[in-house]
């Protein structure tokens, strides 16, 4: 029997009052499950965590490797990908609640006990409330648009703009010619930067832009060559290493082989 049809028939869409009862039942079951998990001995918990992790990973691995039906882009598991994605989104939404709770707890404590810097915490708490109310109740008003676009956007842009100042001071400090390699790097950096700006390009503007052998000696051409022929292979090499490193750690997590990490430590608790 087709898995999708079987699941639809086994779990028909909730209607009427079941729309409310079903989520409540799920919450109740989750609470029970939470306490059951807490009371499990370490060995059982380890096996449970490993099995669930394996199953979750197996779903995506199978969905990827199982051949698709002829004439379609789907196999017998593809239909469930959005549902599994929704499960992940729901989990993320719950953790967002925990995150906001953490933020409010810490800063409320600061305000109540009037610890150092408590006015900042008070501003933060007020901002959270005002922004949340504006977003939920007054989404299509000037009030919300002003907060979102005039205040938040401006703050965002201002923070990004500080990077220009930081780059200047960091580059000034870091670019010291202390070795042959450092000299080579600095010359390359100067050529790339000069090749990007009109003032730099002006230095070799008398060489034709295209259509001549001499064009390759223009600063913008040398800069482009450095980015394409020297920078790109280095980036690609780092990319290969990162890809394989990511594959290895994903395998270790999927098969619960990761030692010393969080899940291993949790599983070993008794």
């Amino acid at each position: 029997m087709n898995l999708q049809k079987f699941l639809i028939s086994a779990f028909p869409a909730a209607k009427g009052s079941m729309i409310w009862i079903a989520p409540l039942l799920v919450i109740a079951c989750s609470v029970v499950l939470f306490f059951v998990l807490q009371s499990l001995p370490g060995r059982a918990r380890k096996a449970l965590i490993a099995s669930l992790t394996f199953l979750a990973g197996l779903f995506y691995a199978l969905e990827f490797f199982w051949p698709v039906r002829k004439g379609t882009d789907e196999n017998f598991l593809t239909f469930a990908v959005p549902t599994v994605g929704n499960v992940i989104n729901v989990l993320a939404a719950f953790t967002l609640g925990l995150g906001v709770f953490s933020l409010v707890r810490i800063h409320t404590g600061k305000v109540v006990k009037q610890r150092e810097g408590w006015p900042n915490s008070a501003v933060l708490l007020i901002s959270i409330v005002v922004m949340a109310v504006a977003g939920i109740r007054f989404e299509n008003t000037l009030f919300f648009r002003s907060l979102f676009r005039d205040v938040l956007n401006s703050f965002d842009a201002a923070m990004f703009a500080t990077l220009a100042f930081f780059i200047i001071s960091a580059a000034y400090r870091a670019f010291r010619i202390k070795s042959a390699e450092a000299t080579l790097l600095m010359v390359a950096a100067l050529v790339v930067m000069l090749g990007q700006i009109p003032i730099g390009q002006y230095l070799t503007h008398w060489i034709p832009e295209n259509g001549s052998f001499a064009s390759i000696f223009r600063l913008d051409s040398i800069s482009n060559w450095l980015l394409l022929t020297v920078n790109a292979p280095a980036t690609r090499a780092i990319g290969f290493g990162l890809g394989i490193g990511g594959l290895a750690i994903a395998l270790r997590l999927w098969l619960s082989l990761e030692r010393g990490a969080f899940f291993e430590a949790k599983a070993d608790e008794s």
Binding site: I238, L242, G245, I249, R252, L257, E258, G260
Partner: peptide, 20 residues
């Protein structure tokens, strides 16, 4: 680069991570 993923092996010297 991938030293980032290798860091736990360097730190712990755990056989599984070294093998990986």
């Amino acid at each position: 680069g991938d030293e980032y993923y290798a860091a736990s092996a360097y730190i712990s010297r755990e056989p599984t991570l070294l093998g990986s």
